[in-house]
Design a protein around this nucleic acid. Structure first.
Length: 810
RNA sequence: GCCGGGGUGGCGAAACUGGUAGACGCACAGGACUUAAAAUCCUGAGUUCCGUAAGGGGCGUGCGGGUUCGAGUCCCGCCCUCGGCACCA
């Protein structure tokens, strides 16, 4: 039948080593008692979808696996865990259609994911695996929620939320795109409902300033900074006419106070009904009703014209004493600042557009330094016609007005953030129940000893449609007695998906602890995560929430670090062969199972690392992976005679050239792994294989360390070759081969010879050669003399080891 | 509109602090082996012009300027593209 073959056969060697790693628990992590330095390298754990692994997953997972294996060889105690972000909408929607319990669907998906990840040979410590939907895990998610609740950081309130009638649920801002639901594209409306909120805004300043101490991509930090959106300015009160008290506004441009020609309140502002004159009442009421009905999409549509209505009321400008009309408009948001602004149409684009539409006066109070732009000038300049600040530059003028307002007790210096509190409840089944019981006398926490509050079974996953979750229908679960023995009701909302993912990195430190979420020793030893890798799409969601929870736990004294992820790296997206995002509808999806069947896991891993820089988006190429497969086969043939199965490697002495190639390779691969430049590390390994293939020499002294550096990239192949080399101990913990810097250096270097700045030839000289030596050689180097003949050399630029450049008289 | 990333051969990409642009790989061409093909191994190649040839010249890192002996790399002004935010006062 099948003839005995000694060809490279990943289908045989890969499962063999995977089984061995599993049975010998090769990647089992030691605890904090270890004498080794720790290294915690973490992937963003996946949502186990029913469609299985996508080729994008192994990209990041291979990168972290390379680092994990490299660090083990470097003598670190490595924590490299994997688990499942398992609560979420898809499993619930599947349950809605089929009646299959989400736990069943999710369990199946997890099986698939685990099988696929094991097939790829990742060195996870599977003994630490868990899913966020395990009661043993969400028990502690509930525990952390109660910590937030105790600290007053979790509260319930009526808020206008994104209500989607089609999905019959409330959506987070992140789940709404262009006024439609991210899933399904159904219209979303604003509607007030009672919701759980987390007071992330309390931590705005720390979340902002602590970004400076993180080794994260600058672009991601900037995204978080913009999201937090800090701005400093003046909060000040304008007296209202008619004994209505005062109107408080926020401005970042106190220096434009003399340019105020009207004021605007958000339609929802509580003062509106109080100050509106009888005459204006009908128009105001109509406008407010319309605004409240408007969907998020309509409200955010910037192309639309600004609209508003005059209230009939006036305020007094405390600086100029002028009478200022008060309008309402939906371009002012109730949720930011005080929900009211002083409008300066000369120096604010939005105010300008509004003033033009309603023929309100425009008064210039800032003169630009340079040329005056057409329309509205919102930059800095010099104050004009502005009382005591006239003639002052903007920055000084701002300061003067602030000081003046504070001294007259008209207002105060204020910091505003765009960041809003985190909407933390969902009217859904498949999430963590809140450990809260409500009664007429108030709400109370479920005692710790009674955690977890488990999800009960339900008959129907259909949301009630009234905004309550399906849990509300399970009366014998809902109706309980509170601590005083009084009949009460359980909270029936569940937590959002981002709850479980906001602290899972802590649970990995001590995943089976039944007494605590994690032991203090484990947290102290393992945290923070040394390297965290995942897609850039979590830049402001998960990554901000996790930082927030970590800080809360820090303030509770439960953790000793106040940032979870010291270093963060994003992997790019793997695009389809057509250069477009992979999607079922485009038909350009590549399935990792198929690729492994064709080429094996090692080749898939190597190819994904060879495609280009990790953080960049890269198109898949079925022909390019062939090239990488060719490389793995060439590497195999470097060691194994495909006809006899015998080893080519011998104990012959390597040549000086061999050693140079080896040490250059060791150096480049070591440094490139440290810098996460895997594509160029692989290029260098190709150079190594090309050299020894061409020279047809296999000195053990060179081949053995090569297997070791191959290991992080193609661990199955490396283990097999290591075994065939007669090594008994596991390759995993074999010390990383050191390179000899002097051997990695060339003993001659090529210097470019330029004439008038153009490269005309090359000279080969010893490193550090002086100008006289190089110049003499350069003048007679191939391609050079005829450019110098008959010309006078005016000047010679000489940069040792780099270049020599002859400048001629013109 | 604002913030951030990216534009280098036919393609994916290299290039440390300004110093041989195109390493490595794909695709391609030629050769060796073979009855032949595949596979494998070896060789070639940015482009264009002159030359039968050896060889030589010009042009080349999105576009236009600048600094420099020398710019993919630094500075100024643009264009295109991808991602995020979007009336935040």
């Amino acid at each position: 039948m099948s003839e005995p073959s000694h060809k490279y056969t990943p289908a045989l060697i890969e499962p063999k080593w995977q089984k061995k790693w599993e049975s010998e628990q090769t990647f089992r992590t030691q605890g904090p008692e270890s004498k080794k330095p720790k290294y915690y390298v973490l992937d963003m754990f996946p949502y186990p979808s029913s469609t299985g692994l996508h080729v994008g997953h192994p990209e990041g997972y291979t990168a972290t696996d390379i680092v994990a294996r490299f660090k083990r060889a470097k003598g670190f105690n490595v924590l490299h865990p994997m688990g499942w972000d398992a609560f979420g909408l898809p499993a619930e929607q599947f349950a809605l259609q089929t009646g299959v319990h989400p736990a069943v669907t999710t369990g199946k998906s997890i099986e698939t994911f685990r099988r696929q990840l094991q097939m790829l040979g990742f060195s996870y410590d599977w003994s630490r695996e868990f899913a966020t939907c395990d009661p043993d895990y969400y028990r502690w998610t509930q525990f952390i929620f109660l910590k937030l609740w105790e600290k007053g950081l979790a509260y319930q309130t009526e808020v206008p939320v994104n209500w989607c009638p089609a999905l019959k649920t409330v959506l987070a801002n992140e789940e709404v795109v262009d006024g439609k639901s991210e899933r399904g594209g159904h219209p979303v409306f604003r509607q007030p409902m009672k919701q759980w909120m987390l007071r992330i805004t309390t931590y705005a300043e720390r979340l902002l300033s602590d970004l400076d101490k993180l080794d994260w991509p600058e672009s991601t930090k900037e995204l978080q900074r913009n999201w937090i959106g800090k701005s400093e300015g003046l909060q000040m009160r304008f007296p209202l006419e008619g004994g209505h008290g005062e109107l408080e506004i926020f401005t970042t441009r106190p220096d434009t106070l003399w340019g105020v020609t009207y004021m605007v309140l958000a339609p929802e502002h509580p003062l509106v009904s109080k100050i509106t004159t009888a005459e204006q009442k009908p128009a105001i009421t109509a406008y407010r009703d319309e605004a409240s009905r408007k969907s998020e999409m309509a409200r955010q549509d910037q192309s639309k014209e600004k609209t508003g209505v005059f209230t009939g009321a006036y305020a007094t400008n405390p600086a100029s004493g002028e009478r200022v009309p008060i309008w309402i408009s939906d371009y002012v948001m109730m949720g930011y600042g005080t929900g009211a602004i002083m409008a300066v149409p000369a120096h604010d684009e939005r105010d300008h557009a509004f003033a033009v539409k309603y023929s309100l006066p425009v008064r210039e109070v800032v003169k630009p330094l340079g040329t005056a732009p057409e329309g509205c000038f919102s930059g800095e300049g010099t104050a004009i016609d502005s009382g005591f600040i006239t003639g002052k530059p903007t920055s000084e003028a701002k300061k003067l007005v602030l000081e003046w307002a504070e001294s007259k007790a008209l207002g105060k210096r204020t910091v505003q953030y765009k960041l809003r509190d985190w909407l933390f409840s969902r009217q859904r089944y498949w999430g963590e129940p809140f450990p809260i019981i409500h009664s007429d006398s108030g709400s109370e926490a479920v005692p710790l000893a009674q955690l977890p509050v488990k999800l009960p079974d339900v008959k129907s996953y259909e949301p009630s449609g009234t905004g309550e979750s399906p849990l509300a229908a399970i009366t014998d679960w809902v109706n309980v007695n509170n601590s005083a023995g009084v009949p009460a009701r359980r909270e029936t909302d569940t937590m959002p998906g981002s709850a479980g993912s906001s602290w899972y990195f802590l649970r990995y430190c001590d995943p089976t602890n039944q007494q605590m979420a994690f032991s203090p020793e484990a947290e102290k030893y393992w945290m923070p995560v040394d390297l965290y890798l995942g897609g850039p799409e979590h830049a402001v969601g998960h990554l901000l929430y996790s930082r927030f929870w970590m800080k809360v736990l820090f303030d509770c004294g439960l953790v000793t670090h106040d940032e979870p992820f010291q270093k963060l790296v994003h992997q790019g997206m793997i695009l389809g062969e057509d250069g477009e995002k992979m999607s079922k509808s485009r038909g350009n999806v590549i399935n990792p199972d198929d690729v492994v069947k064709l080429y094996g896991a090692d080749t898939l891993r190597l190819y994904e690392m060879f495609m280009g820089p990790l953080e960049r988006d890269k198109p898949w190429s079925m022909t390019a992976i062939e090239g990488v497969y060719r490389f793995t086969q060439r590497a195999w043939r470097l060691f194994v005679d495909e006809d006899s199965g015998k080893l080519f490697v011998d104990d012959s002495a390597p040549t000086a050239e061999d050693l140079k190639v080896l040490h250059k390779t060791l150096k480049k691969v070591t440094e490139d792994i440290e810098g996460m430049r895997f594509n160029t590390a692989i290029s260098q390994m190709m150079v190594f294989v090309n050299h020894f293939t061409k020279e047809n020499r296999r000195p053990r002294e060179c081949m053995k360390p090569f297997v070791q550096i191959l290991n992080p990239f193609t661990p199955h192949l490396a283990e097999e070759l290591w075994d065939r080399l007669g090594e008994k101990d596991s390759l995993t913990y074999a010390a990383w081969p050191a390179f000899d810097a002097s051997l990695a250096k060339d003993d001659t270097i090529k210097m470019a010879v330029q004439v008038m700045g153009k490269t005309r030839g090359m000279v080969e000289v010893e490193p550090g050669s002086n100008q006289a030596t190089v110049e003499a050689a350069a003048r007679i180097a191939d391609g050079v003399p005829h450019h110098l003949d008959g010309k006078t050399v005016k000047k010679v630029i000489f940069v040792p080891n780099k270049i020599i450049n002859f400048l001629l008289e013109s």
